[in-house]
């Protein structure tokens, strides 16, 4: 079996084919790299939302004329921080937050340590995504809620977030995919996962087959996340006439 591939790839002009096939057929090693590629961005996404979701909400509710206006100075500071963090290239940011990683995790190297720079880079991005979603909110509905005696907290939790759910889900999909991409980049500074495999083996050791395989797996992961996210968003959106669709399906 593997001999067939070896002669096939060698016939195509690839070098060092046997060791690459050996790596790719070691299911445990590959699976572990895939697992790292998923769990690191997943955790980073979670932490980015823990910071970015409230921040995004404040960016909308705290502005002048918002549900709960905040001092303009504070809003300016928040906006500036978000913009600054977003304008630092990720590779540079990763180096810049090394002291922070040491502080939080006690180490700045290794797969888990990349969660810190990923979170720092993604949180302001998530804040903007949340902000964009919440700005789609119909002002009239918020006004109606205020007229019914909703507190700002109730407006956020019972009106804005539920009403913007489809758009927030799209944002989450978008954020996960972006963080997955950043996570692959983190391979450059010693993070694990497919990104590091593609870099170390593909580039470093000229194992091009492994590199293509890693990239193909990343592409598939992105496709899967996008499909699940879109389907979830559409399914959760009650403005789309789900009932008639399902009725039609039943009658067919």
């Amino acid at each position: 079996m593997s001999e067939f591939f070896i002669s096939l790839f060698e016939g195509w002009g690839f070098l060092k084919v046997p060791e690459q096939i050996e790596y790719l057929s070691d299911f445990g090693a590959l699976a572990f790299n895939i697992w790292e590629t998923i769990y690191v961005p997943a955790l980073a996404t979670l932490f980015a939302y823990i910071i970015g979701l409230p921040l995004g909400i404040i960016l909308v509710t705290g502005e002048e004329g918002g549900v709960s206006p905040m001092p303009k100075v504070l809003m300016d500071v928040l906006n500036t921080i978000v913009n600054l963090l977003r304008s630092v290239p990720f590779l540079i940011l990763m180096v810049m937050v090394i002291p922070l990683s040491r502080l939080i995790l006690g180490t700045s190297v290794g797969t888990a340590a990349t969660i810190v720079p990923l979170t720092v880079a993604a949180a302001p991005y998530v804040a903007r995504l949340v902000e964009i979603s919440l700005r789609e909110m119909d002002r009239g509905v918020i006004e109606a809620a205020q007229a019914m005696g909703c507190s700002p907290w109730q407006i956020v939790t019972k009106v804005m977030l539920p009403e913007c759910r489809p758009s927030l889900i799209n944002g989450l999909t978008n954020a996960s995919i972006t963080i997955l991409g950043y996570g692959a980049m983190a391979g450059a500074i010693g993070g694990g996962g497919l990104g590091s495999v593609a870099l170390m083996r593909g580039h470093g050791r000229n194992q091009k087959i492994v590199m293509y395989a890693a990239v193909i797996i990343l592409v598939i992961l992105v496709q899967v996340i996008q499909s699940i996210g879109t389907a979830w968003s559409v399914k959760s959106d009650r403005r789309i006439n789900n009932n008639t669709k399902s009725k039609r399906r039943k009658s067919l």
Partner: peptide, 22 residues
């Protein structure tokens, strides 16, 4: 004021219903 508003409610030109609720 929030308590008082329960006694003086409002309807609008644009209805302003919550679209994600029945």
């Amino acid at each position: 004021l929030r308590l008082a508003r329960r006694k003086i409610t409002m309807i609008f030109q644009g209805f302003n219903l919550l679209m994600q609720r029945t």
